[in-house]
Write a protein that binds this DNA or RNA. Structure first.
Lengths: 157, 157
DNA sequence: CTGTATCCCGTATGATACTG
DNA sequence: CAGTATCATACGGGATACAG
């Protein structure tokens, strides 16, 4: 029996866990890709990008059109509720998105240089799934806020 | 004209941006909920939870069944590719998930005390959308890895 | 068993200055 | 313009000890 499997049996021992659930837990481990093999696994990093401060906004902007580095910086400042993005983070996030194949970077050698960023097909298809997630949040925003209010009210006693 | 709108016009001035794209950019700002009003907005925090180290795994486990605090800690160790979760983070993540209404916490006063965690309908419906995102990553994992390899190879010259 | 309190570290992010 | 380098800061996360 695999090590992980015996770990699961050990983990639930003493609790009254139905065999069906034990099987489901084992299946969860069996498909390691479900939660990612390690922290550099796309299965972990893509959701992390969606959750970080700037990547998603950059993808949303680049879905509208291709923009230059400096233009993108100004557009972030104009569209984000959180203010400006530092030049450093703009470069870092764009590099990571490019590395994962979600956006393209095109350099036009000239003086001054010109660099354009564009979303890729891969990036577009990712945005579709993320939109579905964002739709869920929009729909359930009131429920989440209500739950938070209830939770916070209890702590004030 | 709203402030943000003129900021956008300013941002793209000099670049040859079609009117359609300008309109789309303005629409993006118009719907502030699209990207969230601030960092405590569910629109920002829910994706952040999906991207953090433990929340998603906890939801996946609780979808299989309801478990006690200590059991959950052992199950994370048994199923995660990243090893154990600290007691501190387990409590913090569970509290946040509970506060947002994604899981329920049931206390049974006894000695020793017993606390069970269960996923809610809200949590289940969120997981459906997240599954769709995870499916995308699974499907496109090879493409992403290939893109990374290409990108990294260029830097080695 | 189910937490809370403290201290510590690594990484994401920011501010500023400098370069081709 | 499009970066890079350097230093500074905030926060997620971990280790350990302690409490009801």
């Amino acid at each position: 029996m695999p090590v992980k499997e015996s770990e699961i049996l050990e983990a639930v021992r003493g609790d009254d866990v139905p065999q069906m659930q034990v099987d489901a837990l084992i299946a969860l481990v069996g498909d390691m890709e479900l939660h990612g093999r390690d922290r550099s696994d796309p299965m972990r990093e893509i959701p992390a990008r969606i959750g970080d401060r700037w990547s998603l906004l950059l993808l949303l902007l680049l879905r509208i059109g291709s923009f230059r580095h400096a233009t993108l910086k100004r557009l972030v400042a104009a569209t984000s509720a959180e203010g400006e993005i530092s030049q450093r983070m703009l470069t870092l996030r764009l590099r990571t998105l490019e590395r994962d194949g979600l956006i393209d970077r095109t350099v036009t050698p000239s003086i001054p240089p010109r660099v354009d960023y564009a979303i890729t097909g891969l990036g577009l298809s990712l945005l579709e799934r993320v939109e579905s997630l964002m739709d869920w949040v929009r729909e359930n925003n009131p429920a989440i806020r209500a739950s938070r209010d209830r939770f916070d009210a209890l702590g004030e006693d």
